[in-house]
Design a protein around this nucleic acid. Structure first.
Lengths: 323, 323
DNA sequence: CTGAAAGCGCTTACAG
DNA sequence: CTGAAAGCGCTTACAG
């Protein structure tokens, strides 16, 4: 920084002003400063800026890289954060790297707030919220100390099952998501619609993965008669079901209709073309970032719990039953 | 930090020593310091440590979150980096966020070195290497200023095609990866084996995505006679081909055999069970991290270009031709 | 082990 | 605009 100042012939304070885009420097000086910085390969030291200015402009995001839905979310979070002048610091949870470790790293970076994607217990969330402003995205938790953004999973599930019933399906199975985020509400929604129409509810225990979908497909094939429709816990599970059924020689939606949940990018792929319940990804990202900003920049302290609407997207994996 | 020191009744310097795990403090003092820190919620400020100590223990990794192969790599990079005492800072390239932006961010964090996953031109890599020790993972580039770790793509491709020939296939099509990393070498390997056996080479232009695989599958169906085997540019493309073929009512490997490339996690899924050429992911991650460490901690300055072996993994999508 | 001091690369407030 | 000064939370080297 001193080198840049010397080269341009101005004070270090002015260079600082130019790089932060503050007023107090002429356009000509700005150009010369940037020019000199480029030649010298100078780049402001984020750590020093942060240290001195006492303000972190970093939003920590705790996520699972292998989770496609998280990837969709962080891609939406980046532009939202940038709009508010924040950088995003990613903290990755991997099979060899527990959440606590990723959290400590994020806190070491002094992120101003943390957006927590995915599953967490109330105890974990509460403990973390005591250390840093926290927005939990996904889990249906409530508390005074943290914000949440979640989807209306129960309503989404009802939309999916009502769609199948309207197509004429009577024998509809749900492959659920166990204890994962939203799974309980999706189960509830499924049960409610089946009950309403006087249909028997059948739930195959599953998870939010392709493997579990493929496994559940084997269970389905053991049913006699074969169900005419499946409501999967999420898109990954649905994709596993579709592929496994096709591999076993069945057609989708000819023999079995399948509905997913999430509205992930994978569901849109032309060879999948999955009917699904879309969660509003960019709206969720927006709400999460704004919740954090409100606490950080506007001084909000009371908890805020946002629920985003879901929407049924009818594509190519659902049709009226043939049997 | 001062609060912790006061609470325990020691100097700040001692607290610093305890947190860095250096000698000069008794076990009892260490315990008391950690105890007090936990009660006070104290956590060392990474930025300040870095600023003062002049050493960054951060490895920047530039990657694409939506790329499953990158995800496999970063999951392998984390434990390797930790082994050498380095933290990983992720820089994400997304559709709305160009590489240059992610690079600036990483450099702002003063990462000690950068591991660059995925595609980059020689000019980009050279320019970046002038600013920070750089290891490019994937692209077949050579230069004096940076290290690379890549796979023996040509040999891998030959393994795949030889496998198909040995099964009895004569009509083998390659769906390529265009200008992406390794695509040229994989094409070369395919052509070499076809030529060696006096077979005609047919290449369908593709990309490293499921969509391109699905699109290529339509092209395949227009071939008369239908090829009996396909060598796909990578696993994602292969998965798209398999699914599209099955959707069109064909069986894999009954009607068409399919081989992928990468050995990604997706290829292992039971409903895919893809025959593929595995790149040594953990070996690649290890080589990349070690290349960076050698420059950082051992003072190596000459470039190092590592090529990792590939391995054919025969699974369920290849079989002798029926026709 | 302590305690005082210097300094990392910045930002900030102030007198000019 | 300048220039000098203080200070962020640490680490480091040193005399005791």
């Amino acid at each position: 920084m001193a080198d840049v100042a010397a080269k341009v012939g101005v004070s270090r304070a002015l260079v600082s002003i130019v790089f932060r885009g503050k007023e107090g420097a002429s356009q000509e000086t700005r150009d010369r400063v940037f020019q000199a910085a480029a030649e010298l390969g100078y780049h402001p030291d984020t750590a020093a800026q942060l240290l001195r200015s006492h303000r972190s402009r970093h939003l920590g995001v705790l996520y699972t890289p292998a989770e496609p839905f998280h990837v969709d979310l962080i891609e939406a979070i980046y532009p939202m954060a940038e709009k508010h002048g924040y950088d995003v610091v990613l903290g990755a949870q991997t099979p060899t790297r527990a959440m606590t470790k990723a959290v400590e790293e994020l806190l070491g970076f002094r992120t101003a707030a943390v957006l927590l994607l995915g599953d967490a217990t109330l105890a974990e969330v509460t403990r973390l919220a005591a250390r840093v402003p926290l927005v939990a995205v996904g889990p249906h938790l409530r508390g005074d100390a943290f914000d949440t953004v979640s989807s209306d999973d129960s309503r989404g599930a009802r939309l999916a099952v009502e769609h199948l019933v309207e197509l004429g399906h009577r024998h509809i199975v749900h492959v659920d998501g166990g204890v994962k985020a939203g799974a309980a509400d999706r189960r509830r929604g499924y049960r409610a619609v089946m009950r309403k129409h006087g249909l028997p509810a059948t739930i195959i225990p599953g998870a939010y993965t392709e493997e579990s979908g493929a496994l559940a497909a084997r269970e389905l094939l053991r049913c006699d008669p074969l169900p005419t429709a499946v409501f999967a816990g999420n898109d990954r599970c649905a994709v596993g079901i579709v592929h496994a059924l096709r591999r076993f020689g069945l057609t989708v939606p000819g023999d079995v209709s399948v509905v997913g949940f999430d509205g992930s990018r994978a569901a849109q792929l032309p060879h999948i073309d999955l009917t699904t319940v879309r969660q509003d990804i960019s709206g969720t990202a927006e709400a999460a970032v704004e919740s954090a900003i409100e606490r950080l920049d506007d001084g909000r302290t009371e908890a805020k719990h946002v629920i985003r609407k879901t929407q049924l997207i009818v594509r190519g994996t659902t049709a009226p039953p043939k049997r």
